[in-house]
Amino acid sequence: MPARKRTSLALSNKQLLRLYEDMSMLRAFDEKVSERCIRGEIPGLIHLGVGEEAVAVGVNAALQPQDKMVSTHRAHSHFLARGADPKAFMAELYGKATGCCGGKAGSMHLADPEIGFLAANGVVGGGLPLAVGAALGQRILKGDWVTLCFFGDGANNNGAFHESLNLAAVWELPVVFLCENNGYGISQSIHKQQRVANVADRAPAYGIPAEIIDGNDVLEVYETVRRAVDKARSGGGPILIEAKTYRTTGHYVGDSESYRSKGEVAKWQAKDPIVRFEKVLRRKKLLSTALKVEIEARITALVEEATDFAMQSPAPDPAAALTHVYCEGGA
């Protein structure tokens, strides 16, 4: 792993506080989602990003507005970090008419072209070829976007992963493959699923450079992704970044988590990305207790507003289920 350079990528104090607030917002949002899911208000299978917020926030801070993002089944934090409207997002999780996808997509199939969020994907590995395509589109249409492709460690044994890396490498596409390695594919530890220790070890086989980073360090995520995105934008081709992280809640809301020990979870909770970054900000004298309270109040209000909006929104007309199966346009 190359030594980190901090200088040219330095963020302003305002931006640093924004990273903290964004991570805290993602955490509060997902905790609310979990609560409402357990209560039976939110239908369907819900995968939380609790513990992995530094990846989503660090990544998005490195992107430009025109950049595209492709996500996974664990998409909440990516979607919010990218700028999704919390109200329309929460309403989508509730399956309401005011949801960002009309209540048709839910947690796993989120999409919003307005913020460059191409697609989340319920099929593990299914998003990687789409990201390659978005990057290919940039080439064909002479656009100026870089595509950021999230995937999990569970996807790296899937053929789509290997095909996508190879295609991106052959065509030198502006795509950054960002692995959130949280150590588990549902209940299976990564060590039971592959012999190579790191997902990043796969990249050199395709002629793609790779870096391994601490996914619970938001600044390390930001700086590494920023360099990768800048390089991709200037024609430097694809790169793979493996962010080592951990989901401190289950695979889905309701997971018994029988496959891992409480000690293991506690070890990672001690590395909580938000708590760690709070310490950094306090050392820099950027975050006082009073400011923290102010931020938390702002977040609570935002999450409550989103939840109330979702609760009070009308259910979709059942007949809407039959719409937009096909696009009306064309010949």
């Binding site: 595209k68 492709v70 072209p113 191409l118 697609a119 299914g126 990687l128 070829p129 789409l130 990201a131 390659v132 395509g133 978005a134 990057a135 290919l136 589109g137 940039q138 064909i140 249409l141 656009g143 595509t147 789509a160 996508s164 295609l167």
Partner: peptide, 11 residues
């Protein structure tokens, strides 16, 4: 898959 991603962008 790449064709789908490219199509979403207007190709």
């Amino acid at each position: 898959g790449a064709s789908v991603g490219a199509a979403l962008k207007g190709v």
